[in-house]
Nucleic acid binder design. Structure first.
Lengths: 231, 231
DNA sequence: TATCATACATACCGGTCGGTATGTTCACTC
DNA sequence: GAGTGAACATACCGACCGGTATGTATGATA
């Protein structure tokens, strides 16, 4: 094995990345540790040095890969007073893989790839369309049969909803969201519709369907703005 | 084994039912044939007499169990001219496990269990809340890695959407749905939101969340009715 | 009643799985 | 530069998996 390198943090990260990819495509239960260590370029000894079991590896993927990923792509309000506008742009960005709604430098260039340094490449939209949302996939598979997964995934969903609701509350104060809108209920509705849309689009392999649904959700969100001053 | 019984249709059905339960809880890949045959009360020889492989068993579950289940609980319009009303009742029925929207004798009794003879018992809502929608679960798990599953599940989604869109079209003609509504796009939006809602509620183990989302979707659907005559 | 396809039951196989026990090499301390 | 623990690599294990080969009982037919 030539000269060994001994970079434990890099090894650990390589294992997490490989595990994430394997789990994203095959789910957790069908994820093969052999494939993961092969992809990461290490051996089983390294894996079990860094993680005590397959399950612990899965938990780490949830906490250290999936959770930040969701936050990076969906909690992009950054003190904005227009949650509906930001959310609509985030949705379109995620669906198209352009991520112009990231918290990094926003760009006007619709064709630009993600510039937020999250490591997502241009091919991401195909991956999303083919493999779906990793958070939703894992939740569907594991939440019924493992409480550890369920609580961790649930935490991500709750943070997502809470962040969205918080932004809506600021919109209420700023007057960009009309009175009477319940931030928590709208947040839950949006999260459910987004996840359902990704799932349906994945099954039909149809980006058009995804975009149509996003547009319809955007239209619905527009109805939550204050009514224009009566003429 | 006392006197043998030789009822091939019952044996086959027992295998399908057991496979459905196992797959609903554990997914297809993690479903164990040993568990299935044990649950069905037969041996591996019987299984492989009726099904040529595990995958064929899974396909049969999709075609013969899941597809009719979806049709029974979601395609309940039966020539009604009020798709929004029927759909709203179906949603609430499925979520509460009362199924008052079934195509069987509709009942006014909100507490009644499903009377459509579909075999669903009172405990169904807990199962839906714990294990989610079997269609969505399988789609999430298998559509990316097996084309046979994907096409079969996709067919169910398409039939669901088509049935919903057809009902909306009748509503358009009957005047219970306002002009300008696109039946196909609304149908896709509804299916995605319903599936997303079940998934989210399953993960949070919260029937309140499910009901809240259903109510919000129902509110949205009400906006698709014709505007009341101007005063 | 002999025949024979159907409908199973039993026993077993190769392969893969997650996990472990043990060996080896590096980096650092003193 | 000897010692030591972290960071791996290698070899191996038992369990379970899907699948098969083969045996056997049943029920209809002739």
């Amino acid at each position: 094995m030539a000269a060994a390198e001994r970079k434990p943090e890099e090894t650990r990260q390589a294992l997490l990345d490989a595990a994430f990819k394997e789990m994203h495509r095959n789910g957790f239960q069908a994820a093969s540790l052999s494939n993961i260590i092969e992809q990461a370029g290490v051996t089983k000894g390294a894996l079990y040095h860094h993680f005590s079991s397959k399950k612990e590896l899965g938990y780490a993927v949830v906490d250290e890969i999936i959770a930040p990923w969701i936050a990076r792509h969906w909690l992009t309000f950054e003190g904005s007073d227009d949650p509906i506008g930001v959310l609509t742009r985030s949705m379109r960005g995620v669906m198209k893989g352009t991520f112009t709604g990231c918290t990094c430098e926003p760009t006007e260039d619709e064709d630009a790839a993600c510039t937020c340094g999250c490591g997502d490449t241009e091919g991401f939209e195909e991956l999303l369309l083919e493999c779906g949302c990793p958070l939703e996939n894992l939740a569907q598979e594991m939440s019924a049969i493992d409480e550890g997964f369920r609580t961790r995934l649930n935490r991500i969903f709750q943070d997502w909803r809470a962040g969205l609701a918080e932004a809506l509350r600021r919109g209420l104060e700023a007057g960009t969201v009309r009175e009477g809108v319940d931030p928590d209920r709208v947040a839950a509705f949006v999260v459910a519709t987004v996840e359902g849309t990704i799932g349906l689009a994945k099954n039909e392999r149809s980006m058009e369907l995804a975009c149509s649904n996003v547009d319809m959700l955007a239209e619905y969100l527009e109805t939550l703005r204050p009514a224009p001053a009566a003429v």
